[in-house]
Write a protein that binds this DNA or RNA. Structure first.
Lengths: 236, 236
DNA sequence: TCTAAAACATGACAAGCGTCATATTTTATT
DNA sequence: AATAAAATATGACGCTTGTCATGTTTTAGA
């Protein structure tokens, strides 16, 4: 963590002057986590601001009876806990877990806000980032409030292709390992329902494989399922 | 709009210097709306940044088949369309409607971001505001994904008491006019379901009245319904 | 390679909530 | 005060999804 240019890898820090990065370098700690660990738990004090450096992190909320929702899956460059970081003294409203090997940067809230005050461009960037996140959260609200299970799952698969997949012979292979349970938690359905729907999707040749190697075969058709609104003019 | 101190009424603008408010005063337009009108519609170009000055505004998303979700009810001082304001050229992802008489301030996006770059304190304040909004949106996700209709409605009533009610003889009277349909749209259930549940709540003396004068009689019990998690240690 | 654990799969059944239909009451407007 | 429109109310019915139970397959770790 000596060389401040390490931070350049993180988009946010491209916007601050080199001298500022120098200063921040001393404040930033990097920590590695592996599956099964917690980056922080619900209720922990929210002292730090976090950034994903490598790997994938999920933000999870758990209800009293053990049910879970995954609020968001975060990838390198993503900030997390922005929401908690703003409450003075309040604890984390959810927990953060690595999905595999991850590396996370951590910066004390105070240092973070001070840096932003000295770097208005970075502050505006953070505003835009939060705006995007808020927009995503609102889309999710719409989906949960108005759409059925099939539609939600189809929509999720489409967005996963867009966010983290590679083309291969047959379609788009997801580069994140996601079990049916993971998928279920992301869209507010049960694991059994996710399994059943994925079964149907598989039989309809829309997808193939399981967590280890989940591939989307027919993206257009999934898109159609996700937004049944749009009356496709089929010429047949 | 000549006197820049008009803007002082808006918390955000307290953080900028008087000279800055002077400059902004020229950029800000105030518009009044009444029920039935639209402040903007889904799909309109998002050129402006909005702030509620007086009254109540709701942000709504509509699905292709006419169903609606209310994302958020905004009160004086609240910013809206922060989420849309960040996308260059993209249209509004939802619409904004007045709930009664409202007055709205409007500021061109460019002017807004420039102001923030010159006023880092205001920028940090906006970051905190967005953080809070994001947090709320995530809570909503949790509610929609994990809770049943009764629980959602109870939770909504509790938060409405906290946000906009006055004490009266029997309980907390809401100061916003909300029909059962409004309530339903806020928590992703149908109007009929909302009516039925409100009926039960009324019979159980938890609430009374309708939109015109909706009063919460038994807040503690509603809170309990909203988070059944917490095992109340009842000493009987 | 073996073994335990996790993930995937499928069925039966019930609950919850949406849908549609119809009726009454309240509110707003002339 | 009269009338139309909106809001509240209630019932019958069925679909979607959750729940629970049980079994098979895959994955990970010793």
């Amino acid at each position: 963590m000596k060389n401040p240019d390490h931070l350049k890898a993180i988009p946010l820090f491209n916007l601050v002057k080199r001298s500022e990065r120098q200063r921040l370098a001393g404040e930033v700690t990097e920590t590695r986590y592996r599956k099964g660990q917690f980056i922080f738990r619900e209720g922990d004090p929210a002292e730090f601001f976090h950034i994903v450096k490598e790997g994938t992190v999920k933000c999870v909320k758990t209800s009293s009876d053990g049910k879970e929702v995954t609020l968001k899956v975060l990838m390198p460059g993503d900030l997390f806990c922005c929401e908690a970081a703003v409450f003075d003294g309040s604890p984390h409203p959810g927990c953060a877990q690595p999905m595999g090997e991850v590396s996370v940067l951590r910066l004390r809230k105070k240092a973070y806000f001070e840096m932003l005050k000295r770097n208005p461009d970075a502050a505006v960037e953070v505003i835009k980032y939060l705006g995007t996140r808020l927009h995503e959260a609102q889309e999710k609200t719409k989906v949960l409030a108005l759409e059925g299970a099939d539609q939600r799952l189809a929509g999720l698969l489409v967005s996963l292709v867009e966010r983290s997949s590679v083309r291969d012979e047959s379609g788009y292979r997801l580069t994140v390992r996601l079990t049916r349970q993971d998928l279920a938690n992301m869209v507010g359905i049960t694991t059994e329902t996710a399994i059943r729907i994925m079964g149907r999707f598989k039989r309809a040749s829309l997808v193939t494989g399981t967590a280890k190697r989940l591939t989307i075969l027919d993206l257009p058709r999934l898109k159609q399922l996700a937004s049944p609104s749009v009356l496709q003019t089929s010429h047949s």
